[in-house]
């Protein structure tokens, strides 16, 4: 059980207020029909699943009900920060959008 900072509410709250939203920054293809089965399968199923730093979404279920981005270390549960979706995207891109 950890504590998350909700960038919309501006508060640190217990994990039980939040819901996990999966890996962040997997945009839905603009024209799904243009993708072959393998590429569409990658979008549906393939996730980074790293041991280490992971960009992921959380939603503040019992608070503002907004989704936001968290950079969390899956091995230690250390949290590097929380951002709104837009700000998180900038931070993610700034570090190369890979880790």
């Amino acid at each position: 059980m950890f504590v998350l900072f909700c960038p919309h509410c501006g508060e640190k709250r217990e994990e039980e207020e939040f819901g996990y939203g999966g890996e962040a920054f997997i945009p839905r293809p603009a024209t799904p029909e243009a993708l072959d089965d393998e590429a569409w399968g990658d979008y549906l199923f393939m996730r980074k699943n790293p041991k280490g730093w992971h960009w992921e979404m959380w939603s503040h279920n019992t608070g503002c009900r907004k989704f936001f981005v968290v950079k969390r270390n899956t091995a230690t549960n250390a949290i590097a920060g929380s951002w709104t979706l837009a700000e998180g995207r900038k931070a993610y891109d700034a570090e190369g959008g890979s880790t």
Partner: peptide, 13 residues
């Protein structure tokens, strides 16, 4: 409800 909010917020704001 959460499903709809997620699509609205993350894909089609």
């Amino acid at each position: 409800m959460t499903w709809l909010e997620k699509w609205h917020q993350t894909e089609w704001p």
